[in-house]
Amino acid sequence: MRIGDKFNELKRKNEGALIAYICAGDPTPDDTKRYVVSLIKGGADIIELGLPFSDPTADGPTIQAGIERALNGGMTPDVYFKTVGALRVNTPLVVMTYYNLIFKRGLETFVKDCASSGISGIIVPDLPAEESEELALLCSEYDIDLIFLVAPTTTGARMDRILSRGTGFIYLVARLGVTGARSDIASSTQELIKRVKTATPKAVGFGISNGKQAAEIIHAGADGVIVGSAFVDIIASGKDTEQRLEALARELKDGIRAVKEK
């Protein structure tokens, strides 16, 4: 399913999107297949599946640890596409990975593999718009969305460049850094949501872990909420993983729904 179609479907229901991230292969490829099902059952609208890279400089310690578990569990790009291709879900799938893995596979091969394994979008946190022309052309050729991030520090001219190139949704980085009070989330995020002027759906990520926060983000005008570390934390604990993933997805989705029903 295409990302745009999912957002249109949700729009008709007057509902925000829950985008759930887990790292593929954490701790094994088979676990990932089951976890994806749990997340969707709980209410996730889009699944982001990390393709683990040895040097994940843009990720916090929680996701970094998940990436290490996945690599130790034998995850490679070949296994990744096989695992994802075997998922039978009617939910848009997005690959999140670092540029070197795409570069090494060959840009066109990578994009082709995405298309044939049912992936609808690509996020590359270490690929700024300035370096993305070749990948963007291939993505449009194979009808895959290339999703870009904007940060509170993103300035006017760069913002325009990113918005003109990004498709699927725009990933808004909610706040700087890894820790901070919840009030910070609200003020800087509200401002960023207002500054990002585009027809493309806006989804906010970084540091969101419960239904109340998710509701605040949607209330501030976002079209979707991205949650990663909170799910990866559950996987790290290894206890009742499927039930808890589903429960957290449900809590987040309930928070999101509550806003639009008002």
Binding site: T57, A58, Y99, P125, D126, L127, P128, E130, E131, F148, L149, V150, A151, T153, T154, T155, R158, I162, V173, L176
Partner: peptide, 21 residues
């Protein structure tokens, strides 16, 4: 130019791009 031939460039998270600019 941010490059030496095809080498170099700025492959960093968006959050750092304004700092490099």
């Amino acid at each position: 130019s941010t490059k030496f031939g095809r080498y170099g460039g700025q492959f960093v998270p968006e959050i750092l791009m304004p700092a490099l600019e």
